[in-house]
Design a protein around this nucleic acid. Sequence first.
DNA 1: ATAATATAGTATCGCTTCGAAACTACCCTC
DNA 2: GAGGGTAGTTTCGAAGCGATACTATATTAT
Lengths: 202, 202
Amino acid sequence: MHSRAIAELVLHVGRIASGEGFVEGLTAAQWAVLRYFAQANRFSRTPSAFAAFHGTTRGTASQTIKSLEIQGYLTRMRSEADRRSVRLLLTDKARGTLANDPFETLVRAADALPPGVRSHFANALQRMLGQVAGERGNPPFGTCASCQHLQSDDCGREGQASYACGFANEPLRLDELDGVCINFVPGKPMTMNGSVTGAAPR
Amino acid sequence: MHSRAIAELVLHVGRIASGEGFVEGLTAAQWAVLRYFAQANRFSRTPSAFAAFHGTTRGTASQTIKSLEIQGYLTRMRSEADRRSVRLLLTDKARGTLANDPFETLVRAADALPPGVRSHFANALQRMLGQVAGERGNPPFGTCASCQHLQSDDCGREGQASYACGFANEPLRLDELDGVCINFVPGKPMTMNGSVTGAAPR
DNA sequence: ATAATATAGTATCGCTTCGAAACTACCCTC
DNA sequence: GAGGGTAGTTTCGAAGCGATACTATATTAT
């Protein structure tokens, strides 16, 4: 199978999985917003971050978000730190609805891959994304696990490592490490030694 | 990496690669039409087939095709066999323009995968497509190589096999075996009586 | 044959979405 | 505190889409 056919497959799978968007009365763009805010970390739950992620304009993102707010899927809070900024959170209604996302068929398909294949598949996809995003000037969008800004400080205590984001200068809870972040920089993959770098997060 | 993240990656790669559609003055939908008619085989170069492939309606497909015809990217011919039907062909202009398809970045990314990884990647993708298309009721769309309708008649002569499509009852030229077909049925991968059939799965 | 039904494709209508540009409010630096 | 940058919204026009109705041709039943 040739590269062109593979590329076409990627597009086709995505189109079929996310198209037919009118399940549950939501459009494809609206599903994308809900999915984004379900996986974005604390620093990235803003209209601008979604716009960058989705490759659209802030204006368009703003409209889609507003429509979801009106329907009760999102709630907004102004940021304390930056009064221009807005925090969006999924409502319980949204979390329930996400189970019916047409996109879930694709999740199941990924889940059905044999475990060995799955990890290689994911790696290949991530490489492709890196290359495509690079050529197109899109931000990479990854998780803390492989981000240059991740700082870990295990303090010599067993099983008690604490993490922080060197970019935001904020400590990170363990459950936050899996969130997608707009400030992601594809740095080195794994943990570092016990030395803390620079200023300690307060 | 979890299944959900993988699924999201597939969508995201596809979105970034095919989005930003206004390169060369064509929209994303128009690029999709050009790509389709560049790879569809003789039986599948019709508006309806494209609509089925792309997961849209015939009306929408008709509009997009008309716009491309007006711009000189497609030419139309009425079918001789079925006078309702229409054959669309890419013009030279279209073939030249396809080189600037934003989608080519994705092709390059697929091409940059190590050869061993690439084939596994393609297999995994195809499995996922099969599952998703099945759940969603989309036609599978594959090539003759793995289609149930493919009939080969090697006449005992070495290297002189001739092929035919049992569905259309038409002989197939060798160069037609790689085209995507709307009548594809995912039958057995490699039928052929006891003879060497290409490379073994490595 | 003729009628009924199905299919390929097109045209029209209204709704939604999108991107561009203008605008407000806020932050930061000098 | 002035200037420039950023977060977000609004407005507007263009394009896309899906639904529906329509024409023309095929196919099947009677």
